[in-house]
Design a protein around this nucleic acid. Structure first.
Lengths: 145, 145
DNA sequence: ATACTTAAAGACCTTTTTATCCTTTAACGA
DNA sequence: TCGTTAAAGGATAAAAAGGTCTTTAAGTAT
């Protein structure tokens, strides 16, 4: 809708991991991908990126898997978005004009700014952990995509 | 940033046409594409779609070209966006969840709604003509992409 | 009429995104 | 230390988006 598929998967995976890992509990890709309804190998790729960027932790070998530590659960969702999709959504002109700026704004410039800052704010003030927490009450909203 | 390239080109083309056509004045694709800084043939394809959907008017043959009539200049920008990108930006879950709804909302559901309605509103209350008008004052912001 | 200009249409190519597979690497347990 | 297990990583494939080119046909001026 607004993010790439990869980014949606990433957010869902992070939320799922926040709710279901930690304190020595790890989760494998098969579990993650089936729970968030994303293709297994694609999910693996995405988790790889997030792991490399230290937004997710991983453990190889027997009983290995992925998990989030306390710090990672406290990260804002916007970190995930930027790690996967970059920050193009948050900067640049809505009409794709290079020349557009405060000094020479395109006709929609200021209105776009408002929408965008709303988006930035919501993604910044929502942490992975807080989102995971808000679904604790049995509502397994992540099941089936 | 938020729209596809095709959609950005479409909006720019519409604004340009609104400012530079009408009352028997037509503009050819070469002029349009160079003024809005978009690939010529790709622009032609996009204009074709807009024409078929009656958001833009065209005239074949000698001295032919594209133009907007009064009604078309009064159309809200959202019509262009929907014609090219569809309405996926305006509906559907931000996390791509099919199950997400008012009853079983995803953790970001309500916050996304606010952002989205802001976007919808801005695109609905801005008409092609009004945007074209706001750049009348010499600022050829469309030049060069 | 007809010749010329220009949009319409559609075939085609390239790049990016999405998705899959397979090999390598590392961790751990026995 | 050896074997199992799971992530890391590279290589490939399919689909969608972005972009180019050629042909067709409509309209207009002459």
């Amino acid at each position: 809708m607004m993010f790439s598929k990869a980014c949606e998967y990433a957010i869902r995976a992070a939320i799922f991991l926040s709710a279901n890992s930690g304190d020595g509990v790890l989760v494998g890709i098969s579990d993650i991908s089936s729970e968030i309804g994303a293709p297994k190998h694609f999910t693996a790729k995405i988790l790889q990126v997030l792991t490399r960027k230290r937004l997710v932790s991983s453990q190889k070998g027997v009983n290995g898997g992925f998990y989030l530590d306390a710090v990672q659960k406290g990260r804002p969702v916007i970190d995930i978005v930027i790690a996967i999709d970059g920050d193009n959504i948050f900067k640049g002109c809505g009409l794709g004009l290079r020349e557009c700026s405060e000094k020479e704004p395109c006709p929609l410039h200021h209105k776009f700014l408002a929408v965008r800052s709303g988006l930035t704010q919501l993604l910044t003030e929502s942490t992975i952990g807080s989102l995971a927490h808000s679904l604790e009450s049995g509502s397994s909203f992540l099941k089936k995509s």
